[in-house]
Design a protein around this nucleic acid. Structure first.
Lengths: 132, 132
DNA sequence: CTTGACCTTGTAGTGGCTACAAGGTGCATA
DNA sequence: TATGCACCTTGTAGCCACTACAAGGTCAAG
């Protein structure tokens, strides 16, 4: 399989696949006579794994560790579990922070009465300090 | 006021203030004899404005525009309003995306029974495709 | 006269790609 | 056979909003 095909199959763009190879997260595949990368199903599976982990918001270092762990069949999955829990925690913190932003933005917008800038509650709120 | 003091007053780090000056978002203040930046209350107010807008998640281009608009007292604040609404929309989209991540992560973690990696539901879920 | 806190400049690094330039390859069609 | 087009190759630079660091200048207190 050439890079374009594996890109279509896994949903990871060709440029990104090459980037992963440069970063050492994906091992370099063999090359065809004309120097094209030649992928097998294993690399495709790894890319799918990476994409799914990235879609769930895991960082590249996390993905790297998950990939390493996934190859050690006999070890306990406690490390995987704790990594996932730590990430969930981060996601929840981020949601909380964004909800605070959202609430303040909503309040700000609701208080604006579409007058001139000099009376604008939005500009006021930013200039002075009304919020937290 | 030297840069350290205005940094303390506004909560914007000195390095960041210099960065804003380089980027042209904050006008360069006069210098003392010894070439130190010498800020007045106006610059401090601008920095507070920037910090509050950034804390609310506005991008630097947005902040730039908000700053420009804030100087045009007589214009209608419709532009401010629509900028803020567009940003609120973005924040809400981000929250929704993170909630989907959170839910899938929770499900994944809940299904793991702390066995060996080869039976690990978390690794399974990443490798194959169970979610959206 | 030295210490230490502050300031100056410039450059490079962060994360995770993405875009682009300049050229080589492979296959179908005229 | 020539040509066009999609695909591949490498390397480099850009994105965002800082942050870190190096190497040096300034100033007041002890």
């Amino acid at each position: 399989m050439r890079i374009g095909e594996v890109a279509r199959k896994t949903g990871v763009k060709a440029e990104t696949i090459r980037f992963y190879e440069r970063e050492g997260i994906l091992t370099a595949p063999p090359r065809t006579r004309s120097n094209y990368r030649d992928y097998g199903p294993d690399e495709a599976a790894t890319l799918t794994f990476i994409r799914r982990a990235r879609d769930l918001g895991f960082s590249m270092p996390d993905v790297r560790e998950l990939l390493e762990l996934s190859n050690e069949d006999d070890r306990s999955c406690a490390a995987v579990d704790s990594l996932a829990r730590a990430h969930l925690d981060q996601v929840e913190r981020k949601i909380a922070a964004l909800q605070i932003m959202r609430d303040e933005l909503s309040r700000m917008i609701a208080s604006c009465e579409q007058d001139t800038i000099s009376d604008c509650r939005i500009i006021d709120t930013l200039a002075a300090s009304h919020g937290p």
